[in-house]
């Protein structure tokens, strides 16, 4: 459970988020909003990459400002651009990197890496340089590298934006099958139809927080400039 308690965030003179009070406990939560509404900031607040200007964010009771290492091991984060998320030169090394804080024996690391490579169809690429993968494979690797560390919550920041239709489907499939809590920030509304809760942000405020159907309808009207009903 992630709790935001009177959270505001400002960059310089500009307010990005105003006084958010949220309890995020549902299995699948979507966050939508126009560019610049603060949704990426919200995602980064949840794993402590950004600390709030005022208020507090906690994950399972751990304050993100005080207990960042506990928060980071609980919350995995998948970024929009896998190219920046892949850290190690080869595919296998990158997966192994995620297990470093766990301090496992070498054989155990190799075993887990192989399991995850198989699960995502990357086994033949283990020793290949990561930059030779296709865009879809890179995103798969980025996701596998987050999941291998067994986080309790996985946050996805626009995971499908850079992908073609087939890869988009594949990533959506993976996200929907996860048994961890997932929080997905996206512009891809059909992604969220089977979610448990959708939060609509506009100019740093929550303007709608509901089941997907009414929330997405609200967001569509908002984006088209029609008066809200909800």
């Amino acid at each position: 459970m992630i709790r935001l308690d009177h959270v505001s965030h400002r960059y310089g003179a500009r307010d990005v988020l105003h006084d958010l009070n949220l309890d995020l406990s549902e299995h699948r939560i979507g966050v939508v909003g126009s560019n610049g509404c603060g949704k990426s900031t919200l995602a980064r607040l949840c794993n402590g990459l950004i600390l709030p200007s005022s208020g507090a964010v906690s994950v399972e009771g751990h304050d993100t400002a005080k207990d960042s290492s506990a928060v980071r091991s609980l919350v995995g984060f998948v970024f929009q651009d896998p190219d920046l998320q892949i850290i190690m030169p080869t595919v296998g090394e990158d997966l192994a990197f995620s297990l470093r804080p766990h301090r496992l024996p070498k054989a155990e690391v190799a075993k887990r890496v192989d399991q995850w490579l198989h699960a995502y169809g990357l086994q033949s690429h283990r020793d290949h340089p990561a930059h030779l993968l296709s865009g879809g494979q890179k995103q798969l690797l980025a996701i596998a590298a987050v999941l291998i560390a067994e986080p309790q919550v996985v946050i996805f920041d626009e995971p499908t934006t850079l992908l073609d239709l087939a890869n988009k489907r594949r990533i959506m499939d993976i996200v929907l099958r996860l048994d961890q809590q997932v929080i997905v920030v996206t512009h891809d509304l059909e992604f969220l139809t089977d979610f448990d809760r959708v939060i609509v942000l506009d100019q740093g405020r929550v303007v709608c927080d509901d089941r997907p159907q009414p929330a997405l309808a609200h967001y569509r009207r908002l984006a088209l400039g029609e008066p809200p009903v909800c």
Partner: peptide, 12 residues
């Protein structure tokens, strides 16, 4: 950001 969120800064 990726280094931090992937635990590069974590104490073992």
């Amino acid at each position: 950001d990726a280094l931090e969120s992937r635990g590069a800064d974590l104490r073992p």
